[in-house]
């Protein structure tokens, strides 16, 4: 039991993070062409609406929620100090969880019942769907049965995650947690591990730069002004091979 705990709660996180880091950097550097999710809206546009929207808004909210609980556990505890606010947070999160699950199931059914989509689907897509569905179902199960998650996450899991990231893994508290919670942790790290090897990579390249960049972009391949100026050196960059 101890060995299993050690493997899944200490070794697996490090393997996952290493795979995630090295794999993502490799893919970003050498496989720039593949840094996106292969959109299928062009082949099937109607049913995607009922899958993609509930899933993405759900997962976005829940991801940010987990992130905040990890980074600022005390603020979440402060928010939860009033029962009403705790209820609002838990119910909202649960609704987003349901939305995510509904979206995922719609996406899965859509992908495997639309003939055209068969030709843009690979095995990894199925793995991603099943993993995410597993993770969402377990998450909802925990939220329903082990209340109130937002509070005990901040007191139990945030320190654990912090210990992982500070290379002093401490699993004393969480080995005592019920099995579904452990499964949720394992699922999370498996998902992190497969990010560089699946369509999930697109979550690393959100178009944030678009918010402040000017609308129009004009690129010059080289500065003709400098080339024509006899005063200037022949080029701004020295030839690299000379």
């Amino acid at each position: 039991m101890n060995a299993l705990n050690n493997f899944f709660l200490i070794a697996l996180p490090y393997i996952a993070l290493a795979l995630f880091l090295v794999g993502s950097i490799y893919r970003y550097t050498y496989k720039g062409f593949q840094l996106s999710s292969l959109s299928t809206q062009f082949l099937e546009g109607r049913r995607l609406f009922y899958g993609s929207l509930p899933f993405h808004w759900g997962v976005l909210f829940l991801f940010i929620g987990h992130l905040i609980a990890f980074l600022f556990p005390s603020s979440v505890l402060a928010w939860n100090s009033q029962p009403l606010r705790l209820l609002i947070l838990e119910i909202t999160a649960f609704i987003f969880g349901i939305s995510m699950l509904v979206g995922l199931v719609n996406l899965l059914v859509r992908r495997y019942t639309t003939p055209r989509l068969k030709y843009v689907t690979n095995k990894m897509d199925l793995v991603v769907y099943l993993l995410l569905i597993f993770q969402t179902v377990i998450g909802l199960w925990i939220a329903y049965n082990f209340r109130w998650g937002s509070s005990w996450f901040s007191t139990l899991l945030s320190p654990y995650l912090y210990s992982i990231f500070s290379f002093q893994p401490d699993i004393k508290a969480i080995v005592l947690l019920p099995v579904p919670v452990k499964l949720h942790i394992i699922g999370a790290f498996v998902i992190i591990a497969i990010i560089p090897f699946s369509r999930l990579i697109h979550f690393l390249v959100p178009p944030i730069n678009y918010i402040w960049r000017p609308y129009q972009q004009v690129y010059w391949n080289w500065s003709k002004r400098d080339v024509r100026n006899p005063e200037a050196p022949w080029s701004l960059q020295r030839p690299k091979n000379n």
């Binding site: 678009y210 609308y215 129009q216 972009q217 004009v218 690129y219 010059w220």
Partner: peptide
Amino acid sequence: LNPACVASCPSGAIYKRGE
């Protein structure tokens, strides 16, 4: 000269060549 495609691209992948 005022391309809507360039302006709409969230990743900034579309551009007008200056030359």
